[in-house]
Design a binder for these strands. Structure first.
Lengths: 178, 178
DNA sequence: TTGAAAACCATATTAGCCCATGGTAGCCCA
DNA sequence: TGGGCTACCATGGGCTAATATGGTTTTCAA
């Protein structure tokens, strides 16, 4: 399963293209679909979320097993599948951001990619900075609930990492991912 | 199995033709019938639904295995099969929308194609926008049932991830939502 | 013969593909 | 350990093929 971590900022060119961070691309190695699935978050955050293509297939499969006559089924499909945009990589590992995505996230010149594990988010760098501050504060509250952080003692906690990570947008590249 | 995702808007010309999105056509690659099956939804939504031709064959086969003397069988066939319209692609990948379809969905100038996984829906763009908003609100309630989400609202890590069949990787859900 | 439907053709726009270049991180060797 | 070197990454821009769309001709049936 693809694992997205760390964050970095990339330029959006005048064709609306952005390079997806090399580390994220490496995490998608071996996927059937050579690209990412973009979707608005279910919450009303001003960002766009990215998933591995396989994730969408799984989602569609799960919805496919629900009662096809239930309203709930269609609602889920509409909210989760109809709003997806499959963005394929070009030869250089870029995707084009669809207009809805750019609008929703308020993207103009630069896009910040933030890895959240199984998915990632794309933000305007300034908007993300504000969002990050809130998220860190929340994380301090809830981190203790995580099963591994209670017993294990020390550990490189997610909160610590988030604190150092977001600011610079510099490069942190763990090349090994395969 | 054909998988329809994402949505896009297309023009209806004065002959009633619309281009089916290229991605949808690609999903129908290899089908015996070169086109789509259109049918009114069972619910009373103002839209038209589209399926792969194979889907109708399967449906007909399933009905064919029911008791041919039961009233129920005929009712199903009437509801599900009699109203189907097989719309073939022209050389450019367009279909002609039958008048009943245009009426039902209130289509005039533009048609929105929304992929819902195994099927898709055709809407008037404005009508869809309203429908989508409702669907998203509903989905927020029920998304927690899906295996891939840790629970959009409440973030319970490690609740019921092993539950559904196909989903290989549940896992980190939204860190926050709402 | 006339209307409708289907096949055919023509074209603007777009998305995808290919090549080029500067910068940088990591590597190798002295 | 320092300095040069190389491969990779991010970014720009042009070109081509596919897409979406409009119109015209042909065919068929009423």
């Amino acid at each position: 399963m693809a694992l997205f971590v760390s964050s970095s900022v990339h330029k959006i060119d005048r064709k609306g293209r952005v390079s997806v961070p090399a580390a994220f691309r490496a995490a998608l190695e071996g996927e059937a679909f050579n690209g990412v699935a973009l979707a608005p978050p279910l919450s009303d955050l001003s960002c766009v979320e990215g998933y591995a293509g396989r994730r969408i297939e799984q989602l569609a499969a799960a919805i496919g097993e629900m009662n096809p006559l239930a309203e709930e089924t269609d609602a889920l499909a509409t909210a989760l599948l109809a709003q997806v945009h499959m963005a394929g990589f070009d030869a250089e590992g870029r995707i084009v951001l669809p207009d809805e995505a750019r609008e929703r996230a308020g993207l103009s010149e630069r896009a910040l990619f933030a890895g959240l594990g199984a998915k990632f988010q794309i933000w305007d760098p300034d908007a993300f900075e504000a969002h990050r501050a809130v998220a860190v504060a929340q994380a301090r509250q809830s981190a203790a609930k995580l099963p591994w952080s209670g017993g294990a003692g020390s550990g490189r906690a997610g909160s610590e990492r988030a604190r150092a990570g977001g600011a610079g947008g510099g490069g942190a590249g763990e090349p090994e991912a395969g």
